[in-house]
């Protein structure tokens, strides 16, 4: 179960502004999905190691060889707002 307040909290963590309609709909919708998810608690998982990754690899290393990186202008080419050779963002504290 996830209630309206939790939905608002999670939306804030997710950096998502929800519309009133979404805020109305999401608690029920997400609860239904989470109820299904919780069926995995029926399994006996005592002593089972978690799988974080299916490939058994550790410390994949390579030679540290210098090579050209992306030119600044190409890195900035897709940005919505650019100034002084950087990404421009609104002030964190408001305008």
């Amino acid at each position: 179960m996830i209630d309206r307040d939790q939905v608002l909290h999670v939306a804030r963590l997710s950096r998502l502004r929800l519309t009133d309609e979404e805020l109305e709909r999401m608690p029920g919708e997400l609860s239904k999905i989470l109820d299904h998810v919780e069926k995995m608690d029926e399994l006996d998982l005592e002593g089972i190691e978690p799988t974080t990754h299916v490939v058994e690899l550790q410390n994949v290393l390579r030679e540290d060889v210098p090579r050209p990186s992306l030119p600044r202008e190409r890195a900035l080419a897709g940005a919505p707002d650019v100034a002084d050779g950087g990404f421009r963002v609104p002030s964190p504290g408001g305008s």
Partner: peptide, 21 residues
């Protein structure tokens, strides 16, 4: 910030993130 859509509706950085997404 780096690519893709940015919402035109915001007052501050947090609002820009939240509305963009």
């Amino acid at each position: 910030v780096r690519y893709g859509y940015r919402s035109p509706h915001y007052d501050d950085l947090l609002g820009m993130y939240e509305n963009t997404r």
